[in-house]
Write a protein that binds this DNA or RNA. Structure first.
Lengths: 210, 210
DNA sequence: TAGATTGTTAATCGATTAACAATC
DNA sequence: TAGATTGTTAATCGATTAACAATC
């Protein structure tokens, strides 16, 4: 399975396929055609077939796709065949919210520790995971094979964290701070820019009003 | 300013322009050319000029763009010239995190109330905003000219909230539940699908490893 | 077998980039 | 004025959709 030259647009649709297939699986739906799936998921049948064929022929002419097989295949493509060690930096409300999401854990994203600079938070246990002093960050991350860091600090703290991360073997950052991190190494960065998203809401709202 | 037939791709870049221009403004940068901005923001100069010209000629040949003017113009395009009344449904960690973000407030998104079904949360005050019983939702929303609802419930509660919303004049939903809401009316829905985003992280991580 | 539906190629559409005349 | 940089048109590139032969 050589995932070469797959466009980002395709990749970003994969989790949605995964989500819908899981739902069908839970509802005991055994097979699905691109046409039926199209109706549910809102992509064209043609696009669905194109998307899936980037990774291999998972379907069968005249039949469609086996839901369970396709679900598993997409899981594999998304890297859900193993666990990932994770830490959260920033143990405020958002960090705590993420620490409490059991769905991340179920998918294999295993939270090993949280970090903060605030003495009031250090020592707390959130969902059985301890909040450590940020001083311990680099050592902990190196000693525990941490691969992904969720950055839940304020805007101002985020770049510092990114700089520290680049001195460790951490492979990926999931960034919630409203800033584009400057990264020299090949660390993967995926951003959740909440404000950017909220501003599109007001944009569309404004359009509706006119 | 008739924002007609502007593609969504353009719209989703606008908040990033807004963010960078704010930063320049804070750093007393008075003017910027598309070429310089390109270097900072990572879009091509050509794309920047194309994007901006969808909304009007904000620049000046031989000079570039006035940072403050452009910042204000983009703010206007994004609908940041007035306040929006907001409520949050779901007063758990995530709801509380959003309630505490002062940046939303500063941009004009004014949180008027929170709602939950959990008796332990009802009556609490988060950042001076009270958590009400979900029973009061419809009445409150109608009586207080609420335009945007942030849905921070679990997956299972979200569609119920969406159904309730459709019985009110609420115009837009910012949805954090991992589900695609079924909406019959023309309510705007903007999703933050955290899991979908996290799965792209594991996808790219997997690609790196190979 | 006949019907259904995929896999895949070709056509279309839209978005990005390049180029340059207009003009500050 | 000369240099710089926009606004805008044209060219290119990539993504989506349509079509249909292959085949289960």
């Amino acid at each position: 399975m050589k995932d070469k030259n797959i466009s980002v647009a395709v990749i970003r649709r994969l989790p949605k396929y995964h989500r819908y297939l899981k739902e069908m699986l839970d509802n005991d739906i055994k097979r699905i055609s691109s046409k039926e799936l199209s109706k549910m998921i809102g992509f064209t049948a043609s696009q669905i077939r194109q998307d899936l064929n980037n990774f291999g022929g998972f379907g069968q002419q005249g039949y469609g796709y086996n839901v369970e097989d396709l679900y598993n295949e997409i899981g594999k493509i998304l890297g859900l065949t193993r666990n990932y060690n994770v830490v959260i930096v920033g143990a405020g409300n958002l960090g705590q919210a993420l620490a409490n999401y059991s769905s991340f854990d179920k998918l294999g994203f295993k939270l090993k520790a949280m970090f903060d600079v605030n003495p009031k938070l250090i020592g707390l246990k959130i969902n059985n995971v301890e909040v450590h002093d940020m001083d311990k960050f680099e050592d902990f991350v190196k000693a525990n094979d941490i691969e992904i860091v969720y950055i839940c600090t304020s805007r101002d703290g985020a770049q510092d964290v990114a700089d520290k991360i680049q001195k460790t073997p951490v492979e990926a950052i999931w960034n919630f701070a409203p800033i584009d991190l400057k990264i020299k190494s090949d660390v993967i960065v995926e951003n959740i820019h909440l404000i950017d998203n909220l501003l599109t809401v007001s944009y569309f709202l404004k359009g509706k009003m006119e």
